[in-house]
Write a protein that binds this DNA or RNA. Structure first.
Lengths: 166, 166
DNA sequence: GGAGATAGTCTGTCTCACAGAACATATTCT
DNA sequence: AGAATATGTTCTGTGAGACAGACTATCTCC
């Protein structure tokens, strides 16, 4: 296929479209939550274990300087606590407060409704399949660091791969 | 399920993760193209028919004021042309130039390589499935307008739906 | 012909991500 | 122990980008 496909079959376009719609819907539903969709993800991630700020930032794919004021808001709202890590006094453990737990459950329910609407065009079995594939891909995705490396390699080695292929 | 799931099974998280990685890879590969990933999508969309600027903006999900300078760059690079629409003198038709065609094909090839890497964790059949599901969802996704309406409805009618359900 | 809608552009504003530095603490090496 | 290096967090500044609003030109419908 020397000629590119239609936009509708472009992976980047589809990803963007779906993600954008998901965020847009979420923002409305999560309007009351500090940090919006990202604040919600912080709560979700803080639910399991007591991650450090940096661990959270990495898992959620946000800059660590952003995580600072994102947590500031959540702390101010009384949804999470910063506790000093007894093992490493540089680090802070992020704990969910009871209030945070309550909000998390409440918003999780609303979000489930939104996603139900969003995925409605697909059959139930397909919805599960999409969720599963995305989850698997997201967890398997290369870490930040070598992600760029791969692209660099491709960019640099295009001619070579072309030759070895042809 | 009264308690929310782990982050790894959150649809929003997975979507964000995959989309972010895709964009990051694409940006490297499409660094030479004005507008980056979005410039690429403009070229792809301009390939079929001769859409107007507004049609492009809507299809790509960008603001119409953004489309203006996005096209400025592509025109300056000689990849597309703005031609007056003979039927509607307010509108401009976006035409791909021969150079634009060449660039599009070239970058489409590189992008295919990147996506190959990105989707590598999935089996080939699963890759096709994911593409298909995403494409179907993206094309079926409600238009900008009522997207927010749905969320509003859910937010406003939460209590009601709860009662009618229980 | 007039009222309202639509395509495109321009301007200003506001948010946000990110780089860089600063500081505290950990870890490793000699 | 002391020096060198790495890591976690915060703060500051800066630049890019999104978006609302106004404006012009044109179209459509009554």
């Amino acid at each position: 296929m020397t000629t590119p496909e239609r936009v509708e079959s472009d992976l980047g376009w589809a990803l963007g479209q779906v993600t954008r719609t998901h965020i847009k819907h979420s923002e409305h539903v999560l309007a009351g939550l500090p940090g919006g969709p990202r604040g919600y993800l912080v709560l979700t991630a803080a639910r399991e274990g007591t991650p450090t700020q940096l661990a959270l930032a990495r898992k959620l794919g946000v800059d660590r300087t952003v995580m600072t004021y994102l947590l500031d808001e959540l702390v101010a709202a009384g949804l999470v606590e910063r506790r000093p890590d007894p093992a490493d006094r540089r680090a802070r453990q992020i704990h969910l407060t009871p209030a945070g737990w309550g909000q998390l459950c409440e918003y999780a329910r609303r979000l489930a409704e939104v996603e139900e609407h969003l995925l409605a065009p697909l059959a139930p079995a397909e919805q599960d399949q999409l969720r599963e594939l995305l989850a698997r891909l997201a967890t398997a995705v290369p870490a930040e660091g070598n992600a760029c490396q791969v692209a660099e390699d491709i960019k640099a080695g295009l001619e070579i791969t072309e030759i070895t292929r042809g």
